[in-house]
Design a protein around this nucleic acid. Sequence first.
DNA 1: CTACGACCGACTGTAAACAGTCGACTTACG
DNA 2: CGTAAGTCGACTGTTTACAGTCGGTCGTAG
Lengths: 219, 219
Amino acid sequence: MAGLTAPLLGLQKKSLREQALSALRTAITSGELEPGRHLVETELSEMLQISRGTLREALRQLEQEGLVSAGPRGRLSVRHLDEKEIRDIYAVRAALESLAARTLCELPERQHVTESLHRAIDVMTAATSGSLEERIESDLEFHRTLCRLTGNETLLHSWESLEGSIRMSIMFAGLEKGVSNMSVDRHRDIVTAIDTGDAALARKTILEHMDTAAANLVS
Amino acid sequence: MAGLTAPLLGLQKKSLREQALSALRTAITSGELEPGRHLVETELSEMLQISRGTLREALRQLEQEGLVSAGPRGRLSVRHLDEKEIRDIYAVRAALESLAARTLCELPERQHVTESLHRAIDVMTAATSGSLEERIESDLEFHRTLCRLTGNETLLHSWESLEGSIRMSIMFAGLEKGVSNMSVDRHRDIVTAIDTGDAALARKTILEHMDTAAANLVS
DNA sequence: CTACGACCGACTGTAAACAGTCGACTTACG
DNA sequence: CGTAAGTCGACTGTTTACAGTCGGTCGTAG
């Protein structure tokens, strides 16, 4: 828990609020702040060396992202996910990413898209020999790229709002299970489907990928 | 603009932050705070009769919902939507609601669902003779109900995060255009499709509805 | 007339203090 | 011994005050 302050003392480019946000996100999705844990404002603000006001702004955003949940009298605690919630999260994720895949198929200029996705896959490939965290990171980056390339800012924003919940799902289910979803081949299939421009196929590929992923997590 | 304080002085059950949030949401989606308008914290806090700290928490959430956008040095202004953004918002909305329709079709116990949706349609029907605002309200309530009935909290939350943007789309395009999408019959079709349990049909019906709606808004 | 520089005002970022509320523990009374 | 009132402590809700920064303006020198 002492490490919580470190990220803050580092690069001072962003506002304290954003730094606190990142630090808290990391602390929660890494399990440093375990699910169900009660978050006391005074405690956290002291840990992060920031004032309560600044901290509260960050907490609001975390609440919106679904990483912390509010109890009675505004008491916040780290959200705890059950299996149904994980399935629900992945259902929404599937809906968003299938839209992304469909959109990309309809793009007139797909050369650049395919290139970017291949680069993302290369990163994933390089990470296969790395740590679990690295593999998860590269996987999420691939999917985020999928959404970003559509040029639909709303879609990207919605996906990013869900990202925290996705990370919690993986963490809650266990990193090993989570990583089992990150086969490079499966992702290559997605890119191939998009490359052909077959929207129905691309959508189907994504939906199956998400289905498998969710099933692996809750099994 | 003077009316901005009224909602706050009313029911004092919710926290000031939540009241400010509602008041600002209403002010923005009603056009009282026009798109592009620069939001000065001291100005707003004085208007709403709350402190800046409390206000800032509300503004963070509005930012997350896409109703206000951040400029350089944290300057906030009311978001301005162009036609592409409206199309993008409706694409995401369509993805979410088609998931909702599909999910509802797969529910074993659809009796209660159908009843609730019919009630929502009755409200819409009653609103046909009402004001534009009432009609919009009842329409959104129908679609929100669609998401709520799935029992997927994440889906509902994602939809609600988008709700502000949807309202802005309607307002930006003009209330008349927006209301043209609110044919009771079209919505009855959706319920019918769900009632039959045909997921593919329900999905298709929703997607077409959203497509038409978006087209009407940007035309 | 123009260009440069110091001041000034407006806002946001951040911190610290104040107030209210709920729960837990204690104590006194039956 | 059990119960109910009272008190204490811990947190959140909210406000007020302070600091830093950017942009504009006014004056002066070239």
